[in-house]
Structures are given as structure tokens and as C-alpha cells.
């Protein structure tokens, strides 16, 4: 369980995180979605107490991260920036972390096998590829068998097999009742893994909803239809808040009406329909719509100040 209340972080005069309030519940995978530079990594550093918030508060499992007696048993974290000494072997890196909590060597071995780094465990981490580095970071995150798992862009650098593995790992962790919080700028990846989404843009929360609701709300009323009398139907459908676009002869995309409304109009006028398909916006499109609004909102907000200046 992660709970943030009005979480804010300024770096100089730049506001990286702006009044974020959210909670991440156990038992589901919560996606943390936003474009690069939107404040995801900063938020995660604030959760871990690596950076101190300018305002607001964030707790993990009911306490500030810093106040946990055994933090690695509470939260396992993979940060976006590499957090491994390049001169140390993967095994010794994990062992050094394990020793702070009295975690035995057998657990280190177990994690090395889990992430598939057995053959390179004695090699210096500096020689690792991006994907191997991610696996090592994931092993470190899971070392303490934590009840909350927080991963920043975990599929970065993983091969397709690794991405598949990561998805099932995350679902498995959530299935065991753990809190799973995963950031990504790849909406398509999140739509496959996350049950719930927290979307941020420019440090502000834009959406906090289930993935399915997010998709259906964002798709709006877009319907594609095929008809031999497309031109006639088009004239009948057009209204102030309805637009019709001909994608190809006889094939239309209608914005602003549902498939039911269009079908009824066609039937009432005796127009034949060969296809009538409601379009579901991809998560990418939904996301870009949302963040565009956020950016426009920001711009509108700035105008009065500029006028004064």
C-alpha cells in the first residue's frame, strides 16, 4: 500500500511533482503512466525517501519509508537510473544489500536463478547489457520478499522473452496479494499488464482509474461504417457536433454518434449498411488526448501572466 497526499517536489524553480494525491492498493498491478519527464521517477524517489518532498507526504505500508525497521522486506524497488557499482559482481552486489538485513546467501542464489543471471553472477556488473542490468535490479528489488514492489520502467532493455517473463512475474506478484506499482511511458505495455492506471503529465495527476474504464472513456464516439449509399448517409448524419470523414469511397469514420444512433438513422432512411464498427481508441491515443489537454491547460494558465509582463 502506497499513499501520497499532495506530494510536491521542486528542483530549483522547476516543479517536478505537483500536488499528487493517490493510493496504490495491494492485489492488483497499478500502472504509473506518463511521458518522459512527467515526474514518475521523481515520485518514486520521494516514496523511497531518496529525495525529500517540498510539500505533502507519502507513506508505504502506513509509515514513511525511512521509518521502517526492515525496509527491504516492505518495499522492493527498481529505479530507472542504474543503482549498481560497475566494479562489483552481480553476486556481491546482491550479497552486500542482503547483509544489511541479515538475509542469507541462499536467498541471493535463489534470486540469481529467478532472474536468470546464474552464468554471469561472478562477472562485474559494469560489463552487463541493459537487459542484464534490469534483471539484476529486479533481483535486488525482490531480495527481501517485499509486500510492495515498485518498478520504474522495468521492461526497458528486455528482449521479448524477458518482457513476457516480466508480465507474468508482475501478475504473479499481484496475485499473491502484493502491492505492485509499475511505471512506464509505453501505454501499450501498460494495457497488457496493469489493472489500474494512475496517469500523470507535467507532475500532475490526470487520471486515476481502472484500465478498462480509461480505455472506454477515452475512445469517445468514433464509428466506422461501410455503405453503398455512403454519400447520402453522410448528409443525413452531419450535425453541429458530428463530423464525418470519408476514409475511402464508401467507407466513413463518424465522430460524435454511437453505432446505435447511426444504425437507427440508416434503417429509418432505408440505407444499407455493410459494416458498422465502434472504434476503441488505443491507450496511446487516449493518453495523448489527455496529456494534450494538460499541456493546453498549462498554456492557457500562463497567458494572463504574460499579458501582465
Amino acid at each position: 500500500m502506497i499513499e501520497a497526499q499532495g506530494l510536491t517536489k521542486d528542483y530549483g524553480d522547476k516543479r517536478a511533482v505537483d500536488g499528487l494525491t493517490f493510493s496504490v492498493r495491494p492485489g492488483v498491478v497499478t500502472g504509473f503512466l506518463g511521458p518522459n519527464g512527467s515526474g514518475k521517477s521523481t515520485t518514486m524517489r520521494l516514496i523511497l525517501g531518496l529525495d525529500a518532498p517540498t510539500g505533502g507526504d507519502v507513506t508505504v505500508n502506513g509509515k514513511h519509508y525511512r521509518d521502517h525497521e526492515a525496509p527491504l522486506h516492505e518495499v522492493g524497488a527498481l529505479l530507472e537510473a542504474r543503482s549498481v557499482h560497475t566494479g562489483r559482481s552481480a553476486y556481491n552486489h546482491l550479497l552486500a544489500l542482503a547483509r544489511t538485513h541479515g538475509i542469507p546467501r541462499s536467498r541471493v542464489d535463489e534470486l540469481i536463478d529467478l532472474v536468470g543471471l546464474r552464468e554471469v553472477a561472478k562477472q562485474r556488473a559494469g560489463k552487463f547489457s541493459l537487459g542484464m542490468g534490469q534483471r539484476l535490479g529486479i533481483a535486488a528489488a525482490l531480495l527481501g520478499d517485499p509486500s510492495t514492489v515498485m518498478l520504474d520502467e522495468p521492461v526497458n532493455g528486455l528482449d521479448p522473452e524477458g518482457i513476457h517473463w516480466m508480465r507474468s512475474l508482475l501478475k504473479g506478484l499481484a496475485g499473491e496479494g502484493r502491492t505492485v506499482f509499475v511505471s512506464s511511458h509505453l501505454m501499450s505495455e501498460m494495457s497488457l499488464t496493469a489493472d489500474h492506471l494512475i496517469v500523470i503529465g507535467r507532475g500532475r495527476k490526470i487520471a486515476d482509474t481502472s484500465t478498462s474504464e480509461f480505455l472506454s472513456a477515452a475512445s469517445g464516439n468514433v464509428v466506422r461504417l461501410r455503405s453503398p449509399q455512403a454519400a447520402e448517409l453522410s448528409r443525413l448524419l452531419v450535425a453541429p457536433d458530428v463530423t464525418v470523414e470519408a476514409l475511402e469511397p464508401g467507407y466513413l469514420e463518424v465522430h460524435g454518434l454511437t453505432a446505435v444512433q447511426i444504425g437507427d438513422v440508416a434503417a429509418a432512411n432505408g440505407i444499407a449498411l455493410h459494416e458498422l464498427t465502434p472504434q476503441q481508441a488505443s491507450l496511446e491515443e487516449a493518453f495523448m488526448d489527455l496529456t494534450r489537454e494538460e499541456i493546453e491547460f498549462k498554456a492557457a494558465e500562463l497567458e494572463p501572466e504574460e499579458a501582465v509582463a
Binding site: L48, H68, A81, S83, V84, T86, R88, H101, A140
Partner: peptide, 14 residues
Amino acid sequence: STGMIRASFTAVPK
């Protein structure tokens, strides 16, 4: 320089 400090302070946040 390597970022290890983040892992160290995550394990020992005090």
C-alpha cells in the same frame, strides 16, 4: 558516480 548510493540508501534509509 555509479548510482550504487541509491541502492545503499534504499536498503538503509536512515
